[in-house]
C-alpha cells in the first residue's frame, strides 16, 4: 500500500523566487501531522502547492496521493481526488450563497466519485447536521460565502466545508488563528471528529495550544523551505520554549558549510 501522502525533494517557486527547497514528507493514513515554522518559511506555500494553486510552480520533486501523481492533476481534480485546503485567509465571494457554493462543490466531488448528485433538500439535511457539529449559526449558510463573516466564523466555515466534503487529505493552514478559546475548542472537537483511519490531516499552526486539543502523531519544523526537524508532540512544547532561532542558525550554518 502506498502512503497516503508522499512528498519527495519538492522545490517550488512563487513569483520567480524559490520558496520550497527540497522538502520531503510522508504521512500515513490515519495520521495527523503538525507543521510549524517561522513566518515566511513556506508553510502556506506548501499548502497551496498541494492544492495546485496557479502561480506556484513546482520545479523539482514529486507529490503522490495514495500513489497517484498529484502534480499531474488540475486544482479541481485534486479536490475531487480528496485534497482539501483550509485557507489561512478564506476568500469572500459576494453574490454566491454559502449553500449554493457548497452544494456545487459536494456535487462536483460526488459525481467524480460516481455517486448521484444531491438535490437541494438532501443537501440541506446533510449541511444542517454538519453545521450542528461545529455549532455554526445556520444563517451563515444562507449568506454569501464569507462575506461579512467574523475571522472566527470564516475559520469555522472552512472546517464545516471539510466536514461536508469528506477529504482524504486535509491541509489546514492556521485554522486556529483568529479563534477565541471557545471557538478553538469547538473547531478542534470538529477536527478530532473527522480523524479517521482513511484520512490524513496536515495541521499548519504557530501555536502549541492547538496541539493540546488535537494531539498530532508527528510534528515537523519547516524552515527556509525544508523540513529541518521531525519529532513527536513534545517537539511543539520545546519550540514554545526556545523558538525557532536554533533551527534558523543551524540551517544557515549548514548552508554556508555546504557552499
Amino acid at each position: 500500500m502506498p502512503s497516503l501522502l508522499e512528498i519527495k525533494d519538492l522545490h517550488a517557486t512563487v513569483g520567480g523566487q524559490e520558496i520550497l527547497r527540497g522538502l520531503t514528507l510522508t504521512v500515513e493514513a490515519g495520521e495527523v501531522h503538525a507543521v510549524m515554522g517561522p513566518n515566511g518559511s513556506g508553510k502556506s506555500t506548501l499548502a497551496h502547492v498541494l492544492a495546485g494553486r496557479p502561480g506556484y510552480a513546482v520545479t523539482k520533486g514529486e507529490i503522490r496521493l495514495q500513489g497517484k501523481d498529484l502534480l499531474e492533476m488540475s486544482t479541481e481534480a485534486r479536490a475531487c481526488e480528496g485534497v482539501f485546503l483550509g485557507l489561512q485567509y478564506p476568500v469572500e465571494i459576494p453574490g454566491v450563497s454559502n449553500m449554493y457554493f457548497l452544494k456545487a462543490a459536494l456535487n462536483a466531488i460526488r459525481s467524480h466519485r460516481g455517486e448521484t448528485e444531491l438535490d437541494a433538500i438532501e443537501f440541506l439535511k446533510i449541511a444542517r447536521e454538519k453545521a450542528k457539529l461545529l455549532e455554526m449559526n445556520e444563517n451563515l449558510l444562507q449568506r454569501a460565502v464569507n462575506v461579512g463573516f467574523s475571522g472566527g466564523e470564516k475559520k469555522r466555515n472552512e472546517i464545516f466545508q471539510m466536514a461536508l466534503l469528506n477529504p482524504t487529505l486535509a491541509v489546514l493552514d492556521e485554522t486556529d488563528s483568529g479563534l477565541d478559546i471557545d471557538a478553538l475548542r469547538i473547531v478542534s472537537d470538529g477536527i478530532n471528529a473527522l480523524r479517521s483511519e482513511t484520512r490524513a490531516i496536515l495541521l499548519i499552526t504557530h501555536y502549541q495550544r492547538l496541539l493540546e486539543y488535537i494531539v498530532p502523531d508527528k510534528v515537523h519544523v519547516l524552515s527556509e523551505g525544508r523540513i529541518v526537524k521531525t519529532g513527536g508532540k513534545e517537539l511543539a512544547l520545546e519550540l514554545e520554549k526556545s523558538g525557532y532561532a536554533d533551527f534558523e542558525k543551524k540551517d544557515a550554518a549548514a548552508m554556508t558549510a555546504s557552499a
Partner: peptide, 10 residues
C-alpha cells in the same frame, strides 16, 4: 482558486 480547490470546475 477557492472554487476550484473545492472541486468546482474552472
Amino acid at each position: 482558486f477557492y472554487f476550484r480547490s473545492r472541486g468546482i470546475a474552472e
